[in-house]
Design a protein around this nucleic acid. Structure first.
Lengths: 119, 119
DNA sequence: GCGACTCTAACGCCGCGTCAATGTAA
DNA sequence: TTTACATTGACGCGGCGTTAGAGTCG
């Protein structure tokens, strides 16, 4: 986790580490844990706002049940987005494979042409 | 293709449509073709710079063969990147599926608790 | 007083979306 | 004149990388 990322999370209100007298940040265990969650959520494709929503959900006086339907909804939207992205990437993969194969073919053909032309 | 995109391509030197007397842009057939290529390359995950490289390759006095190895190299790197991204997304997909399933479970459990507690 | 660390503040990236202000065509 | 186009210019997004200038610790 880069320094800049931590700064960013804090700037966005996702994180609020305690400050020492000098102004230096002190990351407690809870912060570390939270950072892990943040990274996880980011890796799932969530945005800052969605993550803050999740957090405000999770830490609102223990009763996080009313948030569950919302979480499920957001999660499903994200899932749909991920699947769309997967589709796109898979298509790009096969396309690119074809292109590369074609280029290789052109290279070989050019090599042959050179050989025969050099005779 | 949005107007802004065309402006952007032009701004980046990917495109240079002829101007009419009034200053209006005129997109010829070659431009249209080029736009298609640009979109294709973008969809394959290439950056502006890589696309310009490809173009300077393709239009450098007909002999584009010396560019092929380069193109293949770039292509393979992109392919590797795409595959990494696919991996990440696939993981995110299953993770998210698990999370959602768990949330659903919690919801059901909560509903049952309420029923029983109400008795 | 030096080097290794920290801090804040700010700009840059990329592929555009989205205004605002102005000019031109029909 | 209105109205529907076109133009340039600028800011905004998101998740940071990176630099600059100043402070702080050992």
């Amino acid at each position: 986790v880069s320094l800049r990322s931590l700064r960013y999370y804090e700037e966005k209100g996702l994180l609020s580490p305690v400050r020492q007298e000098n102004g230096y940040r002190e990351y407690g265990e809870a912060d570390i844990e939270k950072i892990g969650l943040i990274r996880l959520y980011f890796s799932l494709g969530l945005s800052v706002k969605e993550i803050t929503d999740f957090f405000s959900c999770a830490f609102h006086d223990g009763t996080r049940l009313p948030c569950l339907p919302n979480a499920i909804e957001v999660g499903e939207k994200k899932l749909a987005g991920i699947r769309r992205q997967l589709d796109i990437l898979r298509r790009a993969e096969t396309q690119l494979e074809e292109y590369i194969a074609r280029w290789r073919g052109q290279l070989e053909y050019a090599a042959l042409e050179k050989e025969n032309g050099g005779e």
